[in-house]
Nucleic acid binder design. Structure first.
Lengths: 353, 353
DNA sequence: ACTATTGCCGTGTACGTAAACAAATCCTGT
DNA sequence: ACAGGATTTGTTTACGTACACGGCAATAGT
């Protein structure tokens, strides 16, 4: 370690060169009022010439403001552990930016209950945080909510699924169509001519169903593009419990006992797995998400491939984007599609969600 | 934004509670000399009780020290663009921690020239940085180098490949065996009984060959574990130019014209791709690394799968580990295996190296 | 008894920036 | 020319920590 030789940098140097006080420089930097146009231009020229980068340490230290970020995601229910990862991501981000006077306030809603979403959304609006991270599970309600945010000048970031028309600060999550497309590409390596394929959509709320259909579109899009003519059936299941799934799949298998590959469009693939074990069937199985229950079936060779898009990192990056935008006033990418990861038995151990 | 209500925290509060000055508290925190055992214990008790976390902003701002980190990786040659990504990762990290008075000094060596490695290593030893990030391409020389570092009390982190005996601060990179194992798992989905498989190792320097062999071991390990009896040939090619590869592969294909799948154990898979195009052959092809040239062949359906382990992130994380250890004095994970990513035509667009 | 040494501790300044406060300058109308 | 307000500019303190410096008391040395 060496002692820093005095580099001429910082507001002080700007002030020196412009022959004004640091107070004036400060006013220009924060374009506050009370600076004559002439000195303002002079200072701005010097700032540009020096390529002045404000020292974030000094800035954050001197600014006694607390930045409050709100996060709104589904609560971790016993029914699915999917939202554990985003919560972890939120906590990681919290830990990292806590030292910069950023506080994170977490709001949770019930994925199967619109009313709870509304209630929490209203609470956020009332609390007026400086930024919002949102998993927009309910589309109309999310539009409503973010419209209010826009009016209040509160920037918001979407994760998990996008509402492109709502011009968020950023979307960080999967490209659903492409992930279905990838599943089809994978499928194409696994099947033979005329093998029967089944697409399974499982979700209770109509809303979430939307997302599943985009994946299905992607899947079928691939088949269409490459003129793959295998028969593709599909079933929509409107209950997430085992019995609903069992009942529906029983019907399907009665009609098509020779299904060779099943593509489950979300993390409910574990329920299908259990069904397959119980009915002693053994088609190839592709599903979604790095959940404990899914990994178990992956280990047991019931699930062959899981597609995953780092939900934890989505939340982490979403908060960091808010931090960069609000605190550092840095530009932020408007849309970050997460990589589409393929998980199988031999690499899941190394995966970080 | 709200004004921070005065939370009682920091050295000042410690000083207040202990009825001493902040100078004394400071001495205890940095366990400097000049504090009576009694007050020292009292202060330590209070620190523990308060769960005092030093404010990093204040700390870094007050400390005028510059931390110098050295990075040592192969230079980006025209021959392979592999090291572009780590360099990018280094630059990303540099940008991020620059504001904390951390400077990064980059050293490059020629991957095919031990002498250049030695020269650069000596230069680093002479320059005495505060930490080193190293891609230990040459094993013996790396051991020698890091031993010197250890004597000088300079922590070092390995990326890309590990030397476990050298007790580095951390290793961040692939588990080579497992990545070969995964390739075999994938292979097993793609082939039929009795399909002939070829493993191709291409490298000029004996050293790098080691790494390839670990992948080959993993590949064969999978086959062994699951009693897969497909014929597996292999060829070691000691030249990275097209003609060397061509000559060797011509020999192989003369003997085994019916090879159904080729596993190339490193990024040289592009050379094999070109060969396959030129000789109008079309086996399945699995290789390594997200390089422009490889992606081209992926797009053209010559390469089917690329295995990749985010070399850019390795370097980034490596530097961050050094930063955390040296500057923040935080504990650091000793070994971080990167996820083993599978890249194919339908997801490469979303991949971040 | 006087100085020199040592151990212990408090004070002050600095880091780079933010923001409140204070002061100087500029207008405008009389 | 001057009051009085508006506009522009300068000064100061503070953020939390690091560290140099200096001071005081107690002990040791002569």
């Amino acid at each position: 370690m060496k002692i820093n030789q005095k580099e001429l940098t910082g507001v002080k140097e700007i002030a020196r060169r412009a022959k004004v006080s640091i107070g004036t420089v400060d006013r220009v930097i924060h374009n506050r009022t009370g600076v004559s146009i002439k000195t303002k231009e002079k200072i701005e020229a010097i700032i540009a010439e020096m390529d002045y980068q404000p020292n974030l340490l000094g800035r954050r230290l001197a600014s006694n403001k607390i930045t409050r970020l709100a996060t709104m995601i589904p609560s971790v229910s016993g029914e699915t552990s999917f939202w554990e990862a985003p919560l972890k991501g939120i906590e990681d981000a919290e830990f990292e930016i806590r030292q910069y006077n950023v506080k994170i306030e977490k709001y949770f809603f019930d994925q199967d209950d619109k009313a709870s979403f509304l209630k929490q959304a209203n609470k956020i609006v009332k609390d007026k945080p400086d930024g919002v991270l949102l998993a927009p599970s309910f589309i109309d309600e999310s539009i409503n909510f973010t419209t209010k945010c826009k009016k209040l000048n509160i920037p918001y970031v979407f994760i998990d699924s996008d509402i492109p028309e709502q011009s968020s600060l950023s979307y960080i999550g999967p490209d659903l169509y492409s992930s279905g497309y990838l599943a089809a590409n994978l499928t194409n390596y696994l099947i033979k001519k005329n093998d029967h394929i089944l697409i399974v959509n499982i979700s209770r709320e109509m809303e979430n169903h939307h997302h599943l259909l985009r994946k299905e579109d992607g899947f079928r899009g691939y088949f269409k593009k490459y003129n793959i003519s295998n028969p593709v059936s599909k079933v929509d299941i409107r209950g997430v419990d085992y019995n609903s799934v069992k009942k529906s799949l029983n019907l399907v298998f009665r009609k098509n006992p020779d299904i060779k590959l099943i593509f489950v469009t979300n993390s409910r693939v574990s329920t299908v797995s259990q069904y397959l074990i119980d009915t002693n069937r053994n088609p190839l199985l592709i599903g979604y998400d790095f959940l404990k229950e899914n990994i178990r079936y992956l280990e047991e060779d019931v699930i062959n491939f899981l597609i995953c898009q780092k939900p934890g990192e989505q939340a982490y990056k979403g908060l960091m984007a808010l931090y960069k935008h609000i605190v550092l006033k840095l530009p932020v990418e408007g849309c970050i599609y997460m990589p589409i990861d393929i998980i199988m038995k031999s690499n899941y151990l190394f995966y970080t969600n």
